[in-house]
Amino acid sequence: MDIKQLEFFVVACEKGSLSQAAACMYTSQPNVSKTIRMLEHELGRPLLVRSGKGVRPTAYGERVLEYANLILKTAATISGLTLPDAHNSLRLSTYPSNMISRLLVDFYKTWDTKFRIEYHEGSVEEITDHVHQGVSEIGIVYVALKQVQTFQHILSHKNLVFAPQDVKKICVYVGPNHPLYHMDSIDFEDLSNLKFVRGVRDFFSMEHHLERVSMGVIDNEKLNHVAYSNSDHLTIDLLLHSDVCSLGLDFMHEPYAQYTIKPLSINGCEPFLQLGYVFNPERTLSTQAKWIVEHFSKML
């Protein structure tokens, strides 16, 4: 038995649906189902009643749910007791981002060696876990507007808060060797004709929301993904030296632009991704964390 199994079980009970639990935990429904079944197998009794209408805890599951909530709250308290020294470090977790990296360079140039930089890149789950465990003081994420309320509810179990900053739309990033490099925009219908590189670390991705914002014009499964990787280096080199493109936030802070990579707006795509940061409200933000939040907001 582990914390992740209990988290999946608790969220499934709260949402009454394995698919909604998967969306909340930024994973797939089969993974949620498999994880809970492993817990049931270990305990030797079913925890959920499954039906076409969703799931609900069994009588035994109700008792387990009560103790699972206590365990998760206790685990959150214990995590808060093992914080690293925040006085001499900037501890930040974000999605892979060239602009955040450049922001950290500016932080170093501003504060020189007064603070040590601890920077982690990862998925939504990894970022929020880092903040929850005290590995990072703040975490920068993006969340679909329709999921913000649910996301904040899930964060409450980890004693975390999401502070929204701005809403952005998605775009297609292309390099100088791409045949559409001379264009400024593209239609949803044209996406299926392109070659994409896609990250593999996060179920909560641009592609995950594509079908909703395209009003059914694009089936994400029909996009031509020629490369799957969590390597920023591979993604950048593919964009710079091939006809492969990528989906991303339509957000380019010009002073931090380093490559001959340009965004193509997607015609008819409205802003729908809420960009912000996650933090623990019980911990006062350090001077260095406040600096990052302030300058991140200015970038937006």
Rank of each mutant, 00 (worst) to 15 (best):
C13G: 03
E14N: 08
A22R: 00
C24K: 06
T27N: 07
T27V: 11
Q29M: 15
K34H: 12
T35G: 02
T35K: 03
R37L: 13
E42D: 12
G44E: 11
R45H: 13
R56Q: 10
R56D: 01
T58H: 05
Y60V: 09
E62M: 11
Y67N: 12
Y67G: 08
N69V: 03
A76Y: 01
T82Q: 14
A86M: 09
H87T: 13
L90S: 02
L92R: 02
T94C: 02
P96T: 05
I100K: 01
I100H: 01
S101P: 04
R102Q: 14
L103T: 00
L104M: 12
D106P: 05
F107K: 00
K109T: 15
W111I: 06
R116D: 10
T128A: 03
H157Y: 15
H157I: 01
K158Y: 07
N159A: 12
V167C: 08
K169F: 02
I170M: 13
V174S: 03
L180G: 00
Y181F: 15
S185A: 11
D190K: 09
N193T: 08
F196W: 05
R198Q: 15
G199V: 04
D202A: 09
D202T: 06
D202V: 01
S205K: 07
E207A: 10
N220C: 11
N220L: 08
N220E: 14
E221G: 15
L223R: 05
L223S: 11
N224H: 14
H225A: 12
Y228L: 14
T235N: 06
L238T: 04
L239E: 03
V244E: 03
L247P: 01
L249D: 07
Q258D: 12
Y259D: 09
P263W: 03
L264N: 04
S265H: 11
I266H: 04
I266K: 00
I266Y: 03
F272I: 07
L273G: 00
L275N: 07
L275S: 02
R283F: 09
S286V: 09
A289W: 01
K290D: 11
W291I: 05
F296T: 00
L300E: 11
